[in-house]
Simulated assay, not measured.
Amino acid sequence: MSITGVTNGIYDGIPRDPAATPAAHPAISATEPLEKDQSSAVVAISPEAVNRLKQTSSETEKPPLSEEQQQENSRKINELKLVSPPVIPATSADFYNDVLSPDDAVGVSSLLGLARDSTQSSLDKFTAALHKVLSEGTAAANLYDNSDISKAMAISLTEAKLHKLVDKYIDSGSRDLANTIVDTLIGHQVASREQSSLQLAQAALTVAGKSGDGKQIADVKAYISRLEQDNSHQQQQLAAMQNVTQHGDNMDEAFATFSAMIDTQTEATTQNINGMRKQLEAYKAQWQAFIKSLI
């Protein structure tokens, strides 16, 4: 597996998009609602907008990290790597047989460097657990439903699972840094999701402009403005999910919150709602299996 973003075990702090081949997507209708799941389109985005999208939602309990804080976290991670030998999973590990994004790979490598037990067998178990959480967060998102709300549930649960692994495999003295690494990794996933939303919105604006529909143009521009200000409906939903799942302390409340959010999808068809509920049940089963694996 080819992984970029890691040089001699050192995290350079630069997020990179996953090198994945985009799937084909249907044409965008000028009358189609914007604030629902969309896939990426190739549209130019200003550097200022991209920078804003790199910040985690301001609606979460924790404020977004400032640029200075991010640089300081990267410095600490790099210093750790300079004084510790690179941690490499056994070549037989599933880690090598699955394509993770560069940001995911950097996160895995950095967390392994903080592990309490540096024996090969323990590191391999930690690697396998991290790999399973990250791969499930991607693959499981499309079992029954690929709506935006189901993808938001996947991100929230991935975050909670990673924090649980930090508690299991990393000593308390290193957990603040480990949790920072997790937050940074999840922040990259959120930024990628929001960048896709912005690209699709700008593509929809182009379509609306060609049709000359003044109301649609105004609606799209208003949505883009909310998205750039971290205030869109999707961003608010994800923030609310993260608030109740962040460390996995009360997952009954978390899954009840997910269920209530599904109930608010009044514009979705009955078939789509059923898909969301099946997706939620799949996530519950995965969480229960994950908790058992920690024992």
Results as ranks from 00 to 15, higher is better:
2 S>M: 04
2 S>H: 06
3 I>D: 07
4 T>H: 04
5 G>P: 01
7 T>S: 03
8 N>T: 00
8 N>I: 02
14 I>G: 10
15 P>M: 07
23 A>Q: 08
24 A>V: 04
25 H>E: 11
26 P>R: 11
26 P>G: 13
28 I>M: 15
29 S>Q: 14
29 S>E: 14
36 K>Y: 08
43 V>T: 09
45 I>H: 01
46 S>P: 04
46 S>L: 04
47 P>L: 08
49 A>D: 07
52 R>F: 06
52 R>L: 04
53 L>R: 02
53 L>E: 02
53 L>I: 01
57 S>Q: 08
57 S>D: 08
58 S>M: 01
61 E>N: 04
61 E>A: 13
62 K>S: 00
65 L>Q: 13
68 E>C: 07
69 Q>R: 11
70 Q>W: 12
72 E>G: 02
73 N>C: 02
74 S>N: 10
77 I>E: 13
78 N>Q: 06
81 K>E: 06
82 L>Q: 11
83 V>I: 14
83 V>G: 03
86 P>T: 05
87 V>Q: 13
91 T>F: 02
91 T>R: 09
91 T>C: 04
92 S>W: 08
94 D>G: 00
96 Y>H: 00
100 L>G: 10
101 S>F: 03
103 D>M: 11
104 D>F: 07
107 G>F: 02
112 L>N: 10
115 A>G: 07
117 D>A: 01
118 S>H: 05
119 T>P: 05
120 Q>K: 00
123 L>T: 00
129 A>R: 05
129 A>K: 07
134 L>I: 04
137 G>W: 03
137 G>S: 05
138 T>F: 09
144 Y>D: 10
146 N>S: 14
148 D>A: 15
152 A>Y: 10
152 A>Q: 10
153 M>Y: 13
156 S>W: 08
158 T>N: 05
159 E>G: 09
160 A>W: 11
161 K>I: 01
163 H>V: 00
175 R>D: 09
177 L>S: 09
178 A>Q: 02
180 T>M: 06
182 V>P: 01
184 T>M: 12
184 T>F: 07
186 I>A: 10
188 H>D: 09
196 S>P: 06
203 A>K: 09
206 T>M: 13
207 V>E: 15
208 A>S: 12
211 S>Q: 13
212 G>D: 09
212 G>Q: 01
216 Q>C: 01
217 I>N: 13
218 A>R: 14
219 D>S: 08
224 I>S: 07
224 I>M: 15
229 Q>C: 05
233 H>W: 14
234 Q>M: 08
234 Q>F: 11
234 Q>P: 09
237 Q>S: 05
238 L>V: 01
239 A>I: 05
241 M>G: 07
242 Q>D: 09
242 Q>R: 15
242 Q>H: 08
243 N>K: 15
248 G>T: 01
248 G>A: 07
250 N>Q: 08
251 M>R: 12
251 M>A: 09
252 D>E: 08
253 E>V: 11
253 E>S: 13
255 F>H: 01
257 T>H: 11
257 T>V: 02
263 D>N: 06
269 T>K: 12
272 N>H: 12
273 I>S: 11
276 M>Q: 14
280 L>R: 15
280 L>A: 13
281 E>T: 15
282 A>G: 14
286 Q>T: 02
287 W>R: 04
288 Q>F: 10
292 K>W: 15
294 L>T: 04
